[in-house]
Computed example of a mutant assay.
Amino acid sequence: MLTKIRNANRLNELLFLGGLSLFCFALTILRHGYSDTKAFLFLNWNLFLAFIPWLLTTWLIIHPKIQQNKIIVGLVICVWLLFFPNAPYILTDLFHLRLKLSMPIWFDLVLILSFAWTGILFGFFSLWDIERILSKYLKQKYITMVSVSLLFLSSFGVYLGRYLRWNSWDIIQNPFGLAFDISDRFLNPFAHSRTWGMTIFMGLLLCILYFSFKFIKKRE
Protein backbone atom coordinates (compact mmCIF):
# COMPACT_ATOMS: atom_id res chain seq x y z
CA MET A 1 0.00 0.00 0.00
CA LEU A 2 2.80 2.40 0.91
CA THR A 3 4.43 1.76 -2.46
CA LYS A 4 1.20 2.60 -4.26
CA ILE A 5 0.86 5.80 -2.23
CA ARG A 6 4.42 6.77 -3.09
CA ASN A 7 3.94 5.94 -6.78
CA ALA A 8 0.84 8.14 -6.86
CA ASN A 9 2.85 11.05 -5.41
CA ARG A 10 0.57 11.04 -2.38
CA LEU A 11 3.07 10.33 0.41
CA ASN A 12 3.93 13.97 1.16
CA GLU A 13 0.24 14.89 1.16
CA LEU A 14 -0.48 12.00 3.51
CA LEU A 15 2.28 13.04 5.90
CA PHE A 16 1.25 16.69 5.81
CA LEU A 17 -2.44 16.06 6.44
CA GLY A 18 -1.61 13.41 9.02
CA GLY A 19 0.65 15.91 10.82
CA LEU A 20 -2.06 18.55 10.82
CA SER A 21 -4.58 16.05 12.18
CA LEU A 22 -2.22 15.05 14.99
CA PHE A 23 -1.65 18.72 15.79
CA CYS A 24 -5.40 19.27 16.04
CA PHE A 25 -5.79 16.20 18.24
CA ALA A 26 -2.96 17.41 20.48
CA LEU A 27 -4.70 20.76 20.95
CA THR A 28 -7.86 19.07 22.22
CA ILE A 29 -5.86 16.83 24.56
CA LEU A 30 -3.99 19.87 25.87
CA ARG A 31 -7.27 21.68 26.43
CA HIS A 32 -8.79 18.66 28.13
CA GLY A 33 -5.81 18.29 30.44
CA TYR A 34 -5.63 21.97 31.32
CA SER A 35 -9.34 22.66 31.81
CA ASP A 36 -10.47 19.18 32.90
CA THR A 37 -13.49 19.47 30.57
CA LYS A 38 -14.50 17.54 27.45
CA ALA A 39 -15.35 20.67 25.47
CA PHE A 40 -14.31 20.46 21.80
CA LEU A 41 -13.27 16.81 21.94
CA PHE A 42 -16.10 16.25 19.45
CA LEU A 43 -14.03 18.08 16.85
CA ASN A 44 -11.89 14.98 16.47
CA TRP A 45 -14.94 13.03 15.28
CA ASN A 46 -15.90 15.85 12.90
CA LEU A 47 -12.39 15.82 11.47
CA PHE A 48 -12.52 12.06 10.99
CA LEU A 49 -15.73 12.48 8.97
CA ALA A 50 -13.97 15.15 6.89
CA PHE A 51 -11.13 12.68 6.30
CA ILE A 52 -13.42 10.09 4.66
CA PRO A 53 -13.90 11.94 1.31
CA TRP A 54 -10.13 12.26 0.96
CA LEU A 55 -9.69 8.58 1.83
CA LEU A 56 -12.19 7.57 -0.87
CA THR A 57 -10.63 9.62 -3.65
CA THR A 58 -7.12 8.63 -2.59
CA TRP A 59 -8.16 5.00 -2.94
CA LEU A 60 -9.25 5.70 -6.50
CA ILE A 61 -6.10 7.66 -7.32
CA ILE A 62 -3.69 4.97 -6.13
CA HIS A 63 -5.66 2.33 -8.11
CA PRO A 64 -5.68 3.69 -11.69
CA LYS A 65 -7.20 0.50 -13.10
CA ILE A 66 -10.30 0.92 -10.94
CA GLN A 67 -10.84 4.36 -12.49
CA GLN A 68 -11.58 2.63 -15.78
CA ASN A 69 -14.69 1.05 -14.27
CA LYS A 70 -17.41 3.70 -14.55
CA ILE A 71 -19.78 1.82 -12.23
CA ILE A 72 -17.27 1.66 -9.37
CA VAL A 73 -16.22 5.26 -9.95
CA GLY A 74 -19.87 6.35 -9.91
CA LEU A 75 -20.57 4.48 -6.67
CA VAL A 76 -17.50 5.90 -4.97
CA ILE A 77 -18.42 9.44 -6.04
CA CYS A 78 -21.94 8.96 -4.64
CA VAL A 79 -20.54 7.85 -1.27
CA TRP A 80 -17.99 10.67 -1.47
CA LEU A 81 -20.80 13.19 -1.98
CA LEU A 82 -22.54 11.97 1.18
CA PHE A 83 -19.46 12.68 3.29
CA PHE A 84 -18.03 15.68 1.45
CA PRO A 85 -20.15 18.26 3.38
CA ASN A 86 -18.44 17.11 6.58
CA ALA A 87 -15.27 18.89 5.40
CA PRO A 88 -16.65 22.46 5.27
CA TYR A 89 -19.05 21.67 8.13
CA ILE A 90 -16.24 22.23 10.63
CA LEU A 91 -16.26 25.91 9.69
CA THR A 92 -19.62 26.17 11.44
CA ASP A 93 -18.10 24.84 14.65
CA LEU A 94 -16.99 28.44 15.14
CA PHE A 95 -20.55 28.85 16.44
CA HIS A 96 -19.28 27.12 19.59
CA LEU A 97 -16.66 29.81 20.23
CA ARG A 98 -17.60 31.38 23.54
CA LEU A 99 -15.71 33.06 26.33
CA LYS A 100 -15.15 30.20 28.78
CA LEU A 101 -13.41 30.73 32.09
CA SER A 102 -11.71 27.36 31.80
CA MET A 103 -9.62 28.41 28.78
CA PRO A 104 -8.55 31.66 27.05
CA ILE A 105 -10.78 32.42 24.08
CA TRP A 106 -7.74 32.89 21.83
CA PHE A 107 -6.76 29.26 22.43
CA ASP A 108 -10.23 28.03 21.52
CA LEU A 109 -10.12 30.20 18.38
CA VAL A 110 -6.80 28.66 17.31
CA LEU A 111 -8.14 25.19 18.12
CA ILE A 112 -11.35 25.50 16.08
CA LEU A 113 -9.63 27.23 13.14
CA SER A 114 -6.97 24.49 13.06
CA PHE A 115 -9.67 21.84 12.76
CA ALA A 116 -11.61 23.89 10.20
CA TRP A 117 -8.52 24.48 8.07
CA THR A 118 -7.53 20.83 8.12
CA GLY A 119 -11.09 19.79 7.25
CA ILE A 120 -11.18 22.23 4.34
CA LEU A 121 -7.90 20.81 3.03
CA PHE A 122 -9.25 17.26 3.20
CA GLY A 123 -12.32 18.39 1.28
CA PHE A 124 -10.59 20.48 -1.37
CA PHE A 125 -7.84 17.93 -2.00
CA SER A 126 -10.51 15.27 -2.50
CA LEU A 127 -12.43 17.57 -4.87
CA TRP A 128 -9.26 18.03 -6.91
CA ASP A 129 -9.08 14.24 -7.11
CA ILE A 130 -12.67 14.13 -8.36
CA GLU A 131 -11.78 16.68 -11.05
CA ARG A 132 -8.76 14.62 -12.03
CA ILE A 133 -10.87 11.48 -12.36
CA LEU A 134 -13.67 13.23 -14.26
CA SER A 135 -11.15 14.74 -16.69
CA LYS A 136 -11.05 11.33 -18.34
CA TYR A 137 -14.74 11.65 -19.21
CA LEU A 138 -15.54 15.38 -19.39
CA LYS A 139 -14.11 18.58 -20.87
CA GLN A 140 -12.53 21.10 -18.50
CA LYS A 141 -15.37 23.64 -18.74
CA TYR A 142 -17.87 20.99 -17.64
CA ILE A 143 -15.62 19.89 -14.80
CA THR A 144 -15.57 23.45 -13.45
CA MET A 145 -19.38 23.53 -13.56
CA VAL A 146 -19.50 20.19 -11.73
CA SER A 147 -17.12 21.47 -9.03
CA VAL A 148 -19.18 24.61 -8.43
CA SER A 149 -22.35 22.51 -8.25
CA LEU A 150 -20.72 20.14 -5.75
CA LEU A 151 -19.64 23.06 -3.57
CA PHE A 152 -23.18 24.43 -3.44
CA LEU A 153 -24.57 20.95 -2.78
CA SER A 154 -22.05 20.68 0.01
CA SER A 155 -23.22 23.96 1.54
CA PHE A 156 -26.78 22.61 1.47
CA GLY A 157 -25.49 19.52 3.25
CA VAL A 158 -23.83 21.73 5.85
CA TYR A 159 -27.20 23.34 6.52
CA LEU A 160 -28.85 19.93 6.89
CA GLY A 161 -26.21 18.90 9.39
CA ARG A 162 -25.94 22.11 11.39
CA TYR A 163 -29.59 23.11 11.72
CA LEU A 164 -31.60 19.95 11.04
CA ARG A 165 -29.00 17.66 12.64
CA TRP A 166 -28.95 15.12 9.82
CA ASN A 167 -25.86 12.94 9.45
CA SER A 168 -24.32 11.30 6.38
CA TRP A 169 -25.50 7.83 7.44
CA ASP A 170 -29.10 8.95 7.95
CA ILE A 171 -29.66 8.23 4.27
CA ILE A 172 -29.66 4.59 5.44
CA GLN A 173 -31.04 4.94 8.98
CA ASN A 174 -33.88 7.35 8.19
CA PRO A 175 -34.09 7.92 4.42
CA PHE A 176 -37.77 8.93 4.42
CA GLY A 177 -37.35 11.57 7.08
CA LEU A 178 -34.32 12.98 5.30
CA ALA A 179 -36.10 12.93 1.94
CA PHE A 180 -39.10 14.74 3.45
CA ASP A 181 -36.99 17.57 4.89
CA ILE A 182 -35.10 18.00 1.62
CA SER A 183 -38.16 17.86 -0.64
CA ASP A 184 -40.06 20.27 1.61
CA ARG A 185 -37.36 22.89 1.13
CA PHE A 186 -37.51 22.52 -2.64
CA LEU A 187 -41.30 22.45 -2.84
CA ASN A 188 -41.74 25.37 -0.42
CA PRO A 189 -38.57 27.47 -0.90
CA PHE A 190 -40.08 30.74 0.38
CA ALA A 191 -41.00 29.09 3.67
CA HIS A 192 -37.35 28.22 4.28
CA SER A 193 -35.43 31.44 3.69
CA ARG A 194 -32.70 30.48 6.17
CA THR A 195 -32.07 27.25 4.26
CA TRP A 196 -31.41 28.98 0.97
CA GLY A 197 -29.71 31.98 2.52
CA MET A 198 -27.11 29.78 4.19
CA THR A 199 -26.82 27.49 1.17
CA ILE A 200 -26.15 30.36 -1.24
CA PHE A 201 -23.74 32.34 0.92
CA MET A 202 -21.90 29.31 2.27
CA GLY A 203 -21.64 28.05 -1.31
CA LEU A 204 -20.20 31.39 -2.41
CA LEU A 205 -17.68 31.29 0.42
CA LEU A 206 -16.60 27.76 -0.51
CA CYS A 207 -16.24 28.77 -4.16
CA ILE A 208 -14.12 31.77 -3.15
CA LEU A 209 -11.88 29.58 -1.02
CA TYR A 210 -11.66 26.82 -3.60
CA PHE A 211 -10.81 29.01 -6.56
CA SER A 212 -8.37 31.00 -4.42
CA PHE A 213 -6.51 27.73 -3.90
CA LYS A 214 -6.59 27.07 -7.64
CA PHE A 215 -5.22 30.52 -8.48
CA ILE A 216 -2.43 30.08 -5.94
CA LYS A 217 -1.64 26.69 -7.44
CA LYS A 218 -1.54 28.11 -10.98
CA ARG A 219 0.71 30.97 -9.89
CA GLU A 220 3.32 28.45 -8.81
Rank of each mutant, 00 (worst) to 15 (best):
I71F: 12
P189S: 06
D129Y: 13
D93V: 03
V73R: 14
Y89S: 03
L127C: 11
I52Y: 08
L49D: 01
F107H: 09
L55T: 15
I61P: 05
I130Y: 07
F48V: 15
I112R: 02
S114P: 08
Y137E: 14
M145A: 15
L94I: 12
A26G: 13
I90D: 01
K4R: 15
F42I: 03
Q173A: 09
I52S: 10
N188S: 11
S154C: 08
L134M: 15
H96D: 01
S149V: 06
T92R: 01
Y210Q: 00
V146T: 09
L30W: 13
C24N: 10
N7F: 08
K65G: 01
Q68A: 02
L205D: 08
I200G: 04
G19K: 07
L30Y: 15
G18K: 04
L43A: 01
T3R: 15
R6A: 11
F190E: 13
F180V: 06
W80I: 02
I77W: 08
V110R: 06
L97W: 01
I172K: 04
G123E: 05
N46H: 11
L209T: 02
F156S: 06
S21P: 06
G197I: 00
L151K: 05
L2N: 13
N12K: 11
C78F: 15
G203W: 02
W54S: 04
L151V: 01
L209R: 01
L204S: 08
A39F: 12
P104S: 07
T28L: 03
L22M: 11
P189T: 06
S35F: 00
I216M: 07
